[in-house]
Amino acid sequence: MQRKPLFRPILLALILCGLAPGARAAGEGVDLMQRSWPENGPLGTFDRAAVQRGFQVYKEVCHTCHSLNYLAFRNLAALGFSDQELQAIAAGYKVPALDDEGQPIEREAKPFDHMPAPYANPAQARAANGGGLPPDLSLIVKAREDGLDYVYSLLHGFGDPPAGHQVPEGLHYNRYFPGGNIAMPQPLTDGQVTYADGTNASLDQMAADVTQFLHFVAEPKLEERKLTGLKAGIFLVVFAGVMLAYKRKTWRDLH
């Protein structure tokens, strides 16, 4: 009685096919704009210059409405900012504190502080945005399917609605936003910021840069993770080889 040689591969293939599509819910239907991101891929790393530019876009544009609660200024050290630069960046913000008599005051932020939010609370944020709540962006790239392409596309997606599409008062048409009507006005237009490194600030450039920056904030350990994976992978392959050889040797006397 011979075992079917296909038995194993078929079983595995079936199980894996079952998992992959099953694990994700059906998407919204609009094809996102694609881009190849340097931090993707097994050994991808963040493009430091792009992420720094993205930080500038966030600071100057998005920060008017969106918080970034999980970002502490010290985290930016990973982008290559020196201690002095971090001090200076932090000092550009005020954070609440108490004075010696316990009175609430504001002090200059330090590198260990987190990025202060633009609004004191969600109600204030809604009131200032025609009822829409600008979400915290710390995890936005992970919190959407295909987050990188989605955020990048969303920033491109404003424009005139197709004929017959009604945009309610106070909302804006965006073809990548589910339903098409978003409470965010188009945040980026060509030349919106003046890049410190002289890069031409086209809409596409800024959208890509800020998306990479938001990815960095969502996954600060991405590079460490991939590098650790490489080391673990090399170790495991060697280990598996040794174990296979050892297994063969052990079993030989049975054959």
Binding site: L139, K142, A143, A218, K226, G229
Partner: peptide, 15 residues
């Protein structure tokens, strides 16, 4: 774990 840590999860759970 190292290359597709969120593949089996749901994006919504980061909200």
């Amino acid at each position: 774990v190292f290359y597709a840590p969120d593949f089996l999860g749901h994006a919504d759970n980061y909200v």
